[in-house]
Design a protein around this nucleic acid. Sequence first.
DNA 1: GGCAGGATGGAAACCGGTGTCAATCATCTC
DNA 2: GAGATGATTGACACCGGTTTCCATCCTGCC
Lengths: 357, 357
Amino acid sequence: MSPSKTPSSTPDENETSVEGGRRRATINDIARLAGVSKKTVSRVINQSPFVRDETRERIEAVIAEWGYAPDPQARGLAFRRSFLIGMIYDNPNPQYVVNMQLGLLDGMRGSGFELVVHPCNRSSPTFLTDIRAFVERQKLYGVVLPPSVSEDERVAKLLNEIGCAYIRIASVELDKPEHMIVGHDRMGGAQAARHIVELGHKRIAFISGPESFRSSHERRGGFEDALAEAGLALAPEDIVQGAYTFESGVACGDLLLSRTPRPTAIFCGNDEMAAGVLQSARKAGLSVPQDLTVVGFDDFQIAQAVWPPLTTIHTPTREIGRIAVEKLIGGERREPRDVTKMEPNLVIRESSGPVPA
Amino acid sequence: MSPSKTPSSTPDENETSVEGGRRRATINDIARLAGVSKKTVSRVINQSPFVRDETRERIEAVIAEWGYAPDPQARGLAFRRSFLIGMIYDNPNPQYVVNMQLGLLDGMRGSGFELVVHPCNRSSPTFLTDIRAFVERQKLYGVVLPPSVSEDERVAKLLNEIGCAYIRIASVELDKPEHMIVGHDRMGGAQAARHIVELGHKRIAFISGPESFRSSHERRGGFEDALAEAGLALAPEDIVQGAYTFESGVACGDLLLSRTPRPTAIFCGNDEMAAGVLQSARKAGLSVPQDLTVVGFDDFQIAQAVWPPLTTIHTPTREIGRIAVEKLIGGERREPRDVTKMEPNLVIRESSGPVPA
DNA sequence: GGCAGGATGGAAACCGGTGTCAATCATCTC
DNA sequence: GAGATGATTGACACCGGTTTCCATCCTGCC
């Protein structure tokens, strides 16, 4: 059940290194060397104001000389809290996951925190139990929730109960500002709509992401609103539901392109599905963008790896991650502010063009 | 520098939960409830044989009833080692990174260990210092090194010095068996070659990954060896160097397809570059596989998201990750064995076909 | 029945930090 | 110059486990 054995592979003994012999310094060592009590060293480490400058400098010198860094486990034990940030997610897109991780790491660089990843399955019967065990056992300092876990009120409630700080990254405001970062998918949808309208398209279709993702609704909502501003509207049959996957994009594309008359522009809930539509169009003998305009969402790697490269909505995922962690660990050094909003923006590539003659 | 503030956002106080009041049980609670000393409870947790069955059962019952789990920090402090596994990597491919993470998590599910991710940059001046600080501060239980960090002897040496267990995942045997998992890229290269030869191709080209990746050399080596068995050889100009990226695939494709006579088959060091070649072929007005056969390597998501879907070499990344962690934490319950080898295998899709008439 | 020796259980120290609270020190006030 | 006041500092317990060392309890054996 729990870790119980000593590690199997012990390192070479034959290769004694110069450094190897020097034991890691402890707070007691530093205290002795600086001629103070360990409590005072602790004060310096924790930036307590109640230390005379002269004393502080002396201790800091010793710390620097010995390259001392406090043991996070011991510190955590005393603090009743670890210095680990959890990322709990179920987003299936590798590009999103990696970008988010990089963003989180950006935000905690040099802070002494570490990132522990925890993929999960929202439909598992042990979903909440697993999260609870994870957070409580590791005494996580805080948790970042990207979509769609972020949209699960059970998770937010659980974390509130446990008393674990968290940040939800979502399309809309779901919680108190200090717990949220809003990605503003709605605005992205609107940007896509305006681009397509400007190109002169009238017969426009939309491939939605799964119902279970809030972003699906927001992207669609923003798209429809902006269309309405231009005096256009999506008929119900112009909206088909995909699953944010490549395959679903192909299927939805097949469906839409078999219609008569067929749409001249398709806005897809994400790039994966847009790539699927490109493939569907190819099968149908259509050229993009001459016969069909395709617009994606996310601007992940795949957007540039397909042909033609996708016009899409860029979402600053990594940046969002960075800011999320900063909110989590930065604490009171930032003044309270509104919900943090990160705006997407349109990237025009080659998959969109004027309406065919 | 180091975490020093209390968390900024405190959870709601107004929503008192039923569960919230019940303090987490400690080893002392369990000992008291079971009527034994905490040392005996500790023995049960650590599976010591020196506990009478009756006593053990009683203690286990109390543990189960209270859902007790020992505090990893306290335990780690006493063990002088944490229960964290580090993944130190510099592989730029999100699909690889995510698959590897999932594999590692598969292998540690239910073990009480957690995964801490640590991307790095091999050419950074603080590369080794960073790793050392990470491993030593967190007192990592073990580290998994995927390519190309796995191929860096400085890292292996450092970890040996520190005395941290590690597993290297690489194309070839670089270390003692217990420290290695070999991906056998050479075999994959050979499989690609045999497939291409069977289709009747003679004018064959190869796009290599970057020099700095061992897998580049192995994939190429296996490919050339199997070609040689069929009496074929790659001329130096048929080998061009890419960078494992989509863009480099486009560039290398442009170069190769502008030749006269041009190759009828191109084997690419990975799927990304193969996708790039597909795009290059499209620009050149060539149909795949009618005019050109393209074979990739890895079988990541992109292989199925492009058109036509790529014939490629599937590498069991997730499985490799699982086994790596099991070696790391499974320890002495596994008998010493040879270097673990994970074999790739050919997946035939639609990007390969018989040589054009 | 007495004794050697293995099986069990417990007290106390320790891992490396932090919280509490009292003691010490330097000024300041009158 | 004495007491007051607030800034500094340190002694000691504690976080939740493990290890060391020793006491006790059974056994089997003679």
